[in-house]
Design a protein around this nucleic acid. Sequence first.
DNA 1: GACTCGTTTCAAAGCGCTTTGGATGACCAA
DNA 2: TTGGTCATCCAAAGCGCTTTGAAACGAGTC
Lengths: 366, 366
Amino acid sequence: MNLKDLARTLGLSPTTVSRALNGYPEVSAATRTRVSEAAKAHNYRPNTQAKRLATGRAMAIGHVIPISTRHEIVNPIFADFIAGAGEVYARAGYDMLLTIAPDDDEARAYREIRSKGNVDGIIVHGPKEADPRIPLLTELGLPFVVHGRATGATLPYSWLDVNNARAFERATEFLLDLGHRRIALVNGLEFMDFAIRRRRGYETALAARGIALDPALTTSGEMTEAQGAAAARAMRALPDPPTAFLTSSLLSAMGVRRVVEAAGLRIGRDVSIVTHDDDLGYLKNGDDEPIFTATRSSVRDAGRRAAKMLLALIESPDAAPRSELLEAVLLVGQSTGPAPALRADPTTLPSPTLPSASAPFSGEQG
Amino acid sequence: MNLKDLARTLGLSPTTVSRALNGYPEVSAATRTRVSEAAKAHNYRPNTQAKRLATGRAMAIGHVIPISTRHEIVNPIFADFIAGAGEVYARAGYDMLLTIAPDDDEARAYREIRSKGNVDGIIVHGPKEADPRIPLLTELGLPFVVHGRATGATLPYSWLDVNNARAFERATEFLLDLGHRRIALVNGLEFMDFAIRRRRGYETALAARGIALDPALTTSGEMTEAQGAAAARAMRALPDPPTAFLTSSLLSAMGVRRVVEAAGLRIGRDVSIVTHDDDLGYLKNGDDEPIFTATRSSVRDAGRRAAKMLLALIESPDAAPRSELLEAVLLVGQSTGPAPALRADPTTLPSPTLPSASAPFSGEQG
DNA sequence: GACTCGTTTCAAAGCGCTTTGGATGACCAA
DNA sequence: TTGGTCATCCAAAGCGCTTTGAAACGAGTC
């Protein structure tokens, strides 16, 4: 059943039927209801391809998943982000198009998407430092929103990001307030923008207290359980091991916890852990009360917001780039506690006033 | 630059240009090279929508991600599966279309996809017992391949599945051979087909040795770290606790491991763990040598194979349904060992011949 | 030289929709 | 009655491609 058929059965022209269904004013109320009832009765659905060709709008959003040819790892937050974005697209009548692009010919992938013309906009995932995709997409004139940001990008662009720097600064401050001085950072791969910002936040907090950065206490790598375990094992073997760990993912935190507990120590008493928590569906940090003290920010929610932003951008293409900075929430769980009595310097005791728990941070730029 | 423009610059008709580019024989070799060189030079790319409208082929595959309105959980294996499938689609010139469908109106979602006509086929994810989507899609006449199977489906359909029953039967046998008699099953949600089959395999192996099933030793639920931990905690508290755990995911296994180690016991000596390992990019079971003894089957590879199967199905729509049963590989890691000396019955000692390690199972139906 | 045949190219008709630019009445004011 | 204004509806021209049916042309055959 296509438009022409429907029009014929109604004794109307395709023009009128089309207008009736698409809410144009040049059609009487009576005809409109008659048409839309017939459409429902015959289960008519306009052919997407034809509509697209006629309107020039693809009614689809592209998501390009970068896959590192080296690690072959798919970012585990991706599924949740997509789920959030997908909700928004579905409501707005948009399709979601996925492309897997190995990172060695990303540019080609984006150019091809552009010239095939089957999406109206793109969400850029996993931005790296000075990411070349930003100038590329700007040049191509394809609306896009970056999930994250790219340090060192010169052109203005639309993005949605968690305030990673502030989150990690805050987490570090929290541990410092608890009296910790040897705080380890188990970070993601540091060519990724979010990891760069997290490290920056960590370093800022340390510097503010006049604590020297110890390179032996920081590592970066893929955020897996094994990474956390390996980092903890190596750092526990140091002459002056850390009393607290700051990790970039729940998986890493779980690895740290395992090694620490295997050494006969107790998390939250002997060793503290704070982790970032993307609040993924299948990787929950406890049910009601968090297990790990964590800076939490829902990736799913980020997906929803980024999608809305992109749709708005497509609606008004000449508007200035938008951006949204989400603040992570610091949730105090059972994995943190005062630093064990300090041998070296017994004067620096935990401050009596602990930071407030679940209040979002203030909204300054990160 | 569209076909007409290109034709004009070449001094040819659109017909000839189209034929030259699409490899039709009615064009001389000289013209063909001239055309394709011009196309490359002008970076011409045929408009997807127009092509689709003209040919009637959407050149896209739909993936429908079911989201439970109750749990709101996105299956973590999804990202890897998609990555595998996406490779194949990209090579074949197909797009990948994602739809998020809450499980309360799945039927509507599939009907809509069908009538909008923007995919040539569908991959069905997360089949449940007697899944209604199979008769629905058959009725709609849309080619589809199920990742998994649906126990109790009456119509023939195309599927690709891991031999879950055999894998878990084999894992159970392995533990039995090591002398374990109290073997716990930490399963996925048992309305999912794969979980039903896994339980069946487990029960088959126990029955074959005349071991009664103890309901207190089996649980099912979402496969998270917390699930594993909770199960281990509950079961360790039994008067006759299990000496071995069989889990459905690495995350669950990690939860079990944590609780067991926290009790001061050693994995592989005091308590054994075998898990199923989907070989996900971000959740590796060790690098070279596996940490957990596991039945392994790559989800990414499954994605590739399912995609190929669907494309073949689309090529020849009248062919009989296809199917592919993948056998998991049993990899012996450090998490299993002989059952601790049995108090009740010291005669049942571990058999001296251990099952062979990395050989795939035989290919019988599961 | 007329005819057939194969090769190479083209004009034009779709694919199913939107949208521009009327056409047709009905209604009212003058 | 005439002219103008609305409110409705429609014919036809695209959107950019494929594909059918036919034309043009040179070469081979008698």
